[in-house]
Structure formats: structure tokens, C-alpha cells
Nucleic acid binder design. Structure first.
Lengths: 324, 324
DNA sequence: CACCGTATTGGAAACGTTTCAACGTTTTTT
DNA sequence: AAAAAACGTTGAAACGTTTCCAATACGGTG
């Protein structure tokens, strides 16, 4: 594998000159530039990016730390994040924490050692304190404090819209269905917005929540349907699309048809729910915009800029499907 | 940021000794080890992984190069690949090529420059020739030649099983529905298996295919339903689950109910199709096993081992849903 | 022709680590 | 008690780049 030194030798110039040619530094006579380029071509020389990163004491690697790329919302997010990073000349490292706090910390340590340029994180932990160095971080949907800028959708308004739309669709008794993973999650605002609007409209409502871990098994829904005050609920706002889809399924087993007997609205707006039948009505997070904004903000932080806001809230949109 | 030198100084030992302590080299007296560890703790020293990679001329970064993490099958795959890599002490870099040959080559160049330890690729291009260095590569579902080991599901048998199951479900005239992205794709074997078995069983069949790019718009299905020889088709084998789901949708618009009027089987076995209604019957690729095997094989290649096979085919399974 | 200023160029130092030959110290063997 | 062997340790070299300072070349000016 030829190095810059070999190129310099063959071209009959110094290594500094070769470096300048590679980096398009203007102070090189064009005749010299030609010679060097010829030598590069002849030797099939490829600059060693690792050596460069080492020397420069910085890299162009950004880590995306999330619970699981498996989840459709995260994979859509990751797609746009990677795309934007690539446009900006950065690379993406993917870290699945499984939502486990210990694994998040383990990854954070590793990213430290590897001197990544920045981190975009969707974490359980308050990483504000646990990250020991000054790697720039953007947090999605989790608000910890000043140091870590948060990008999120406008959850509160989303919750309000959800209620409004359920009412418009004819619901008279509604419930909020939630799984929450982190104490710091902005997701609780979906509930607040929903509740506040329910009070304003004078609609009867209830809430039913569990932690992430539990909702894989069926007891979550069994309990829901067994509780007496959930009788006659005819409007459901689930805080993710996947949860909404599961609800619809379980409701059917309990003899409730959607949307005839119960209206359902989800949250996220993942692409695959266009394939669900009935098509899910949802509060759509603008995932592409959130992804691109996260990257842009992170890069500004990497450049050393101070950001003007601590939280960036991106507007949401109601997307009607067939469940309302 | 303290370096190994600072640690050595504080501990009153040579840098080589510190290095051996960090790397758990046995030839260090325990009293020395203590001193060094104390110094490490005091200085809050973190080994610089970038410098280490540079010196060692190798990294523990593996790249996953695929069309789009957006696709549920790929995101499931990525999840397990990341998990297995992490277990083995490696990291994952994610590259979405968008299925565009030029972008694949661009990424390949970049990975070269960045001296990744290995690549797991799902590509359009025959990367056997275009990759200029000897970075180990595992290719998923694409078979190019000896240099690049291929991991794939048993597509041929999958195609045969699909036909058998359609017949069992009562289909009498069947069609293969396909989108193919790469000339090198092993996916064509799904068709071959399907056809061969149809001939064996003496079932009337036809095939209908397009390239990846086209199937997003509706003309794909319009044409399908308009062709006279597709009249009375009552069994469909689509070569991906997503395609099957879209077919079912369009069929409904054409007055065909699934499974009453037409039986449908997909391929992949992505998790979300449990949420489709009706639940899709499918030929399930063992995605976790494929992911873990790809990683293990890649690591063996990285260690310099020669692999015994050029293609590793992993058995598939029929998973019955509600569309047959 | 001497001088100056500017445009190019060369090459050494530095980044933080591993490794290895050489050296120093302790233990074992004779 | 000396020699040999085993064990620990040191510090310099090397990995491939960038950057900076000094050196050189070249053109123009007085």
C-alpha cells in the first residue's frame, strides 16, 4: 500500500507538496500539481483516512445511538440521518442499545475512546452527566438540560390534535394508551396535550400506561379491556403507531370493530402503516425534517457554534387513514 | 486529554509498560500494574482508539452497505448484524446506497480510504472487481465469484415450497410476481424453484417482473391486471412481503378478495407483516441466523482464514398467515 | 546588478500508540 | 559463589499524515 512518501519520491517532490496537492491547497504550481497527480495515478495511491484522522485529532464519524434499528420509526430516521450526514461529508456509526441503560453507557464510553465527532442519541439515561468528554450531542425526543440540544416533534400539539380528531370522528369517551421508555422523554407531552384538550372539550377520558418492557406480552391489553372504566371507550389515542396497530388487533378479538365501534389514532406516521388494514390514522412526525435538522444542528455544534435554542420542536400533522 | 506518556510519567514507568498494562500483557509485575492503574485512574486516562487503529494499521469497523435501511427486512438484518458485531468487539458503519451503482462505488472507495476491517454488502454492482484492495467482503443474496463469499437463504427451495403451499391452499392457476434489483441476485432462484415445481405438479403458471425502480408507481399492478393471461389467476407468489402486501391491496381494488379469490404468499418473513390484515403467509428467511452467520464468516475472513464454501445457503420455512 | 517581495517547495516535528531490541534485576542451576 | 536463565522494564522507532518554518526560486524595481 503506497504512502504519501512513495508518491513524493516518484514525483520528485517533498511530502508536504503532495499533501498540499491532495488537499487542494492553492499554493502549488500547476506543473508540480500535474507531476504529483501523475504519480498518484501510477501508484494507485489512496490517502489513508485513518492516519489523517489521527493526525488531525478528529474524525468525521457520527454515532447514532438508539434503542433498536428494528423499529420502523427509527429505521426511517436512520435512513435520513445517514443521507444528510453523507451529504455533509460525514459517516454514520450505528449503535443499538436495546434501551438498556448499561449498554448505553458502555456505548458512550466506546464512542469516547473512538473520538467520534458527535452523537445523535435516543437514550434512556441522562447522558448529560455520564458523558465524560465534550463530544457534541443531539438528543431526539429526550430533554435533559442545556448541554444536550433536543430535537423533537411538537408532542403537546400532537396530543391535542389527536383528541380533536377523535371527537370530530364521533368519539365520546376516549383513552390515552401509552408505553413510555424514559423518564426524560418528551413523549409525556402527547398525553398532556391530549388530556388538556379533553378537559377543554369536556370529553370523558382516561389514561393507561406501562413501561416499554411489558407491552410485548398480552397482559397489557388484557388488563386494559378488563378494567371497568374502559367499557364503552370509543376513541383511542395510542402514543405510537405500532401500539395502535396492536390495539386494533386486540380490540377485534374483544368484538370491537375499527372504526365502527372505536376510532383509533396513532403517533409517528411510519410508512408501513399504509399497509395495515384498516390504514391507520396517525399524528405524523416529520421524520425526514427531524433527521436533517438533527444532523445540521449537530454539525453546527461540532464546528464549535453555540445553538440558540435548547429544544427544537417540529410541527406535526394529522394524517387521516381509515381508523377514524 | 492525557496520553499514555502522561500516565507513564506519573506512574514513574516507561510507556511500554503502560501499554502492556492496558492490553493485559502478562509480563508485568503486579506491583507495577497497581501503580499504573492508579495513575490511569488519577488522570482519568482513556486509551485513544484512533491512535491504536492507526498504529496497528487495522480497525474494528465493519461496514454494512445496503440499498436502504428503510426497508423492514434490511433493518431487521442490520439489527442482528450490529448485535453480533458488538459481541465480537466490532463496530458497525451504515451505508445506504439507495441501490444506485455509482453510490455503491463511491462508498466502496470511501471504505477503502477508511481502512474498514470488512464489508457486508447487498449491492447491485459486481463488487468483486471494483474493490481495489483486499478488504474481506461478505455478500448477502448476491453471488459474484470466489473472492466474495455469499450468504443467502435457500431461494430455490423457498420457491418450490411457495408453489406447493399455494396448491395445497387450493390454487389452480398461479403467477410469480417479482421485482429484481441486481443481475447477480440469488433472488431469481425463487422464480426457478417456483417454476420447476409448477411444472412437476402440472399447474398452469406465469411470471411477471420489473426492475426495482418501477414498482413504486402503480402502473406495475395496472399492467398486471390488464394482461389477459392473468385472468383467473388464483395463486400469487410475490418475491418480497412488501410486494405481496401491495398486491393484496391492488387486488382488492380489482374486486379480488384474499384469500377467498386469490391466495398469496410473500417472501422474507418481516416482523411487521404480523400487523397486516390479513396476516401475510410467507416464506420466512431466518434473518437472525443469516445476520449472525454473515458476521462470523466475515470475521473468519478478517482473521485470514480461507472459507470452505463460496455460497452458504440457509434453509427457509413456510409461515402460514391468513392469505392462504 | 543588488535588492526586495512573493510564490513555491522541502523536510522535520508532532499526533498516541505498539513493539522490539537491549538492558537490568531477580531467581535458579551448577 | 559464579554462571545461566528467566523475568521485567525501558525507550526509541515506526505507522501516514499535516503543518510550519526555513529555504529557494523567480520576478520586478531602484
Amino acid at each position: 500500500m503506497p504512502s504519501i512518501k512513495d508518491v513524493a519520491e516518484l514525483a520528485g517532490v517533498g511530502v508536504g507538496t503532495v499533501s498540499r496537492v491532495i488537499n487542494n491547497h492553492p499554493a502549488v504550481k500547476s506543473v508540480t500539481r500535474e507531476k504529483v497527480n501523475a504519480a498518484i495515478k501510477e501508484l494507485n495511491y489512496i490517502p489513508n483516512e485513518v492516519a489523517r484522522n489521527f493526525k488531525m485529532q478528529k474524525s468525521t464519524m457520527v454515532a447514532l445511538l438508539l434503542p433498536s434499528i428494528w423499529h420502523p420509526f427509527f429505521s426511517e430516521l436512520a435512513f435520513y440521518i445517514e443521507d444528510q450526514l453523507d451529504r455533509e461529508g460525514y459517516k454514520l456509526m450505528l449503535c443499538n442499545s436495546g434501551g438498556r441503560p448499561d449498554k448505553e453507557l458502555y456505548y458512550l464510553d466506546m464512542l469516547n475512546q473512538n473520538k467520534v465527532a458527535g452523537i445523535i442519541g435516543i437514550t434512556y439515561n441522562d447522558i448529560e452527566d455520564s458523558v465524560r468528554t465534550d463530544i457534541p450531542i443531539i438528543s431526539l425526543d429526550r430533554h435533559f438540560g442545556k448541554k444536550i440540544t433536543c430535537v423533537t416533534s411538537d408532542n403537546y400539539t400532537g396530543g391535542r390534535i389527536a383528541l380533536q380528531e377523535l371527537v370530530k370522528a364521533g368519539a365520546t369517551k376516549v383513552a390515552y394508551l401509552g408505553v413510555t421508555s424514559s423518564a426524560y422523554s418528551e413523549v409525556v407531552l402527547r398525553k398532556s396535550g391530549f388530556i388538556d384538550e379533553a378537559k377543554i372539550q369536556g370529553i370523558e377520558f382516561s389514561t393507561y400506561e406501562e413501561h416499554d418492557e411489558v407491552y410485548e406480552d398480552d397482559s397489557f391489553f388484557e388488563n386494559f379491556f378488563n378494567l371497568p372504566h374502559h367499557q364503552n371507550v370509543n376513541g383511542i389515542f395510542a402514543n405510537t403507531d405500532l401500539l395502535a396497530a396492536k390495539y386494533i388487533d386486540k380490540a377485534k378479538l374483544n368484538g370491537l370493530r375499527t372504526p365502527e365501534d372505536v376510532k383509533v389514532i396513532g403517533y409517528d406516521g411510519i410508512q408501513v402503516n399504509k399497509l395495515f388494514r384498516p390504514i391507520l390514522s396517525t399524528i405524523r412526525q416529520p421524520v425526514e425534517e427531524m433527521a436533517r435538522m438533527s444532523v445540521k444542528l449537530l454539525l453546527r455544534k461540532i464546528e464549535g457554534e453555540m445553538l440558540e435554542q435548547e429544544i427544537y420542536r417540529i410541527p406535526v400533522m394529522y394524517r387521516r387513514g381509515e381508523t377514524t
